[in-house]
Design a protein around this nucleic acid. Structure first.
Lengths: 205, 205
DNA sequence: ACCTGAACACCGTTCAAGT
DNA sequence: ACCTGAACACCGTTCAAGT
């Protein structure tokens, strides 16, 4: 058998990504396999390799779309907060809400390692930078006398911090049950951090 | 062939764990396979299943030993710091130093998921609680008027925070190159957090 | 040109059979 | 009693062969 042409390359790409997302969302990324995805869209394994470089590439595309959804959620939530501090806290809450809603997709972003420790492609790095800019923006609004470098440093520290709480919560390493408790811990982190940050003329060591 | 009895069960266990650690340290946990480990110790795959329940169990044992090494390093470093605040900062630095020295072993602790989301065994949870107590102890020394609950919350927030910075650094998501820069970001997090924490009569929302 | 399906070199896990 | 090795049901990836 051959030459079906039921779908365009772009359609197959979309079907493949959607099927992968479905498997990841319901069974986790451990359950993702080329054969399973191919079966789900009614093609054979070989076809996937006409559209994607390999499984690593497929996962990278999936992760890109996860980052897009996360960005959308965050931006939407940012439209309903009052001042810079409230908006910064909202950033953390939105992040956790997403991780809680799509734990497997979210984890895959950080557990997926490219072969030979290669750098992710530019389009991917830009998505991350794009999201990161939102944190830096809010931190900058709170900074009274801090330099750009200190603001960048603070944004990385705080985003890393919120991220870590998420991870530990999802892997049950925090001894904290439920999303509410995670949100409370995140609030503790951000609240104390911001207090320390705005109260200092300079944070440089 | 059969009945070699060259080694006791305990010796095979030790050889298996050592070989697994070697593979993980040099090639990452993706490269770990039952057949590869068996080959490295001169036995066939079947033998591993006489000593370990399955590969998940083997990894759990490896992770337990990783936690032990981390604990040793932290406790040793804690003997050379001046006051509570310095010791707390040292905790973060030790943690990052370990993650940097043994990135693959360290990552495996958080990427390993038990089947069906089962809880890890008691002996494993105790190792984590043991290490966590070190953070709580230092936080408690810095707390002037905070309640036990606030101290526990703060310890979780701060440890989660340091952990997250580690992850993002290792996965190149922080735009920060090198251990020094990671240590600086961690310092920013801890310094601002502690400043906020000690300056507040109560952190309850 | 597009897709198949068989092949290759791997997996984790089990278990009858050998000594 | 201890260990093997073959079997089973899977993997990712490639590519000659079919239409």
């Amino acid at each position: 058998m051959a030459r079906r042409s039921d779908h365009s390359r772009e359609q197959i790409r979309e079907m493949t990504l959607a099927a992968s997302e479905e498997i990841i969302a319901t069974q986790g990324h451990q359950a993702l396999s080329a054969r399973k995805v191919a079966g789900a869209i009614g093609y054979t394994v070989g076809t996937l390799y006409l559209v994607f470089e390999n499984l690593d590439d497929l996962i990278l595309q999936v992760n890109g779309r996860t980052l897009d959804r996360l960005y959308e959620l965050i931006v939407e939530d940012q439209r309903h907060c009052a001042d810079a501090e409230a908006c910064l806290f909202q950033l953390g809450h939105s992040y956790i809400r997403f991780a809680d809603a799509e734990p497997y997709a979210w984890q895959l972003i950080f557990e997926h390692r490219l072969a030979d420790d290669r750098e992710p492609p530019d389009w991917y790095q830009e998505k991350i930078a794009h999201m990161f800019a939102l944190v830096e923006e809010r931190i900058a609004q709170l900074a009274a006398h801090q330099s750009d470098k200190e603001i960048a440093q603070a944004a990385r520290a705080l985003w890393g911090g919120v991220h870590g709480i998420c991870i530990l919560a999802i892997t049950h390493t925090l001894g904290a049950a439920g999303v509410d408790s995670v949100q409370a811990i995140t609030y503790t982190l951000m609240n104390n951090f911001v207090k320390g940050f705005v109260s200092t003329p300079s944070n440089k060591q």
